[in-house]
């Protein structure tokens, strides 16, 4: 579904991602873990089309997406839950969700997906008319997930969905990701919380200073002494 080959990305003159190749197969949940500043967000943003690579190719459903603008990729089914949630602060919850479904023309499908999002996070229905910035951090994260859901993603890019959330909410948002995965959405999950990510993923990659250093099935990575030491807290 997603094939990244030899991807290199710069910010000005400094290199953020260097020679990364990875694949996410149809229906898979693949995680990319790594420390602060490893380059995870940069990879996701480049896949979304928000950042231009210096080198390498990105193919989605077999098609090279170089040169396609973000909204075109989004309409092809690539949807991102961005780092820091990035909900629209002055729009209501419902308006945020309508932006998620903006490019869709199947009214009935949108209505059904909206119901699904509300069923997943009932608090959003209660707060439908409330302005985004007045939501708590956890509610904002739920809104960011719901906004992606109503876009009906084929490939969902998830960036640090658990960051800054209370443990009970961490479980809730990870459950939401698992649910989407079970329903057939392909997921590329970026996390610093490697323990959680490797619990739900099929496969994983480990990124360090812009380079891939390890890859394998989730079970392999969980058992890897290097991973245990550096990312799972011993």
């Amino acid at each position: 579904m997603l094939d990244i080959e030899n991807l290199t990305v710069h910010y000005g003159h400094s290199v953020a991602v260097s020679g990364v190749s990875l694949t996410v197969g149809e229906g898979e949940l693949v995680t990319l873990v790594g420390a602060n500043g490893a380059g995870k967000t940069t990879i996701l943003r480049t896949v979304m089309g928000l950042h231009r690579p210096t080198q390498g190719s990105i193919r989605y459903q077999g098609r090279d997406v170089a040169g396609l603008r973000p909204w075109v990729r989004s309409r092809m089914g690539v949807v991102m839950i961005p780092e820091g949630r990035r909900i629209f602060p002055e729009l209501t919850v419902l308006e945020n969700l309508r932006i998620g479904a903006y490019a869709r023309t199947d009214r009935d499908g949108v209505a059904a997906d909206l119901e699904k999002a509300y069923a997943m996070f009932p608090i959003l229905r209660e707060r439908a008319g409330q302005i985004g910035r007045t939501l708590s951090g956890g509610q904002q994260q739920m809104l960011a997930i719901a906004r992606a859901l109503v876009a009906r993603p084929k490939l969902l890019l998830v960036d640090e969905i658990s960051l800054g959330l209370a443990p009970i909410l961490v479980d809730e948002v990870f459950r939401a990701v698992e649910t989407l995965h079970r329903e057939g959405v392909t997921i590329f999950l970026v996390e610093q919380n490697a323990r959680k990510a490797l619990e739900i993923a099929d496969r994983g990659y480990v990124l360090s200073s812009g380079r891939l250093v390890l890859e394998g099935t989730a079970a392999e990575l969980r058992a890897n002494p290097e991973v245990k030491k550096s990312y799972l807290g011993g």
Partner: peptide, 24 residues
């Protein structure tokens, strides 16, 4: 609808673009 897209774009141009809005 255009106004909704406009308000979203004014609040966060990148995120609007990533959600299918032709910000150009």
């Amino acid at each position: 609808r255009l106004g909704l897209a406009w308000r979203a774009s004014a609040q966060d141009l990148e995120t609007a673009a990533a959600h299918g809005i032709n910000t150009d």
